[in-house]
Nucleic acid binder design. Structure first.
Lengths: 95, 95
DNA sequence: ACTATAGGCAAGTGTCCACTTGCCTATCAA
DNA sequence: TTGATAGGCAAGTGGACACTTGCCTATAGT
């Protein structure tokens, strides 16, 4: 699980998606696409963003809920809470 | 710089190297190789570990000092301190 | 001097990953 | 129903990356 979190955070586009969801939760795929395009000049295809969201969901950093034909995405910061304490406070190594 | 930190943390072998340096600071390249091989069954070449250390140094997570023919590596946790605060919103602001 | 040790440099390889393209399904409004 | 919108699935491509191999430099011990 921590493995997936590090992998999810590795990509700059995914980190920007987290930024957008932190600023405004409950966005749909199209909203996120529009925001990335306007605010960050990222001309990504819808599928590219969709695949990023899938990675973020697999890591637990993003949760989604479906309502009709809309799918809303929410940020979940729980996996981030103790991500660095592994090296700051000596706990046990994970993977 | 934060970009480099996330990239450095993306690889599981590099995270194990950080684990080893957190447990015992000032190790040389050969010591790290031996520890990865014994404790983690990672049969990596010396160059592979050397390249990982270069990535970690570029991120600031590892600092090195040369003494004669030895090069000692130390963990620097400073770049990890506020890595997640970018998305974690506090309900009670920290004045 | 010779030799072993500690490390670096550079090219090559295989694999993973980000992204695209094309087509498909589901929901809602006219 | 027809058409527009929101999203999903799958194959393909280019580039980045982890790792290897081979050769080279520098330091230290004999």
């Amino acid at each position: 699980m921590a493995e997936d979190v590090f992998k999810a955070l590795a990509d700059p586009t995914r980190r920007k998606i987290l930024d957008e969801l932190a600023e405004r939760s409950g966005q749909t795929l199209f909203e996120i696409c529009a925001r990335l395009s306007m605010k960050h000049q990222l001309g990504l295809s819808r599928q590219a963003v969709s695949q990023h969201l899938a990675v973020l969901e697999a890591s637990g950093l993003v949760e989604s809920r479906r309502e009709g034909r809309y799918k809303f995405h929410d940020l979940n910061t729980a996996p981030l809470e103790h991500i660095a304490e592994r090296w700051i406070r000596r706990d046990q190594p994970e993977d």
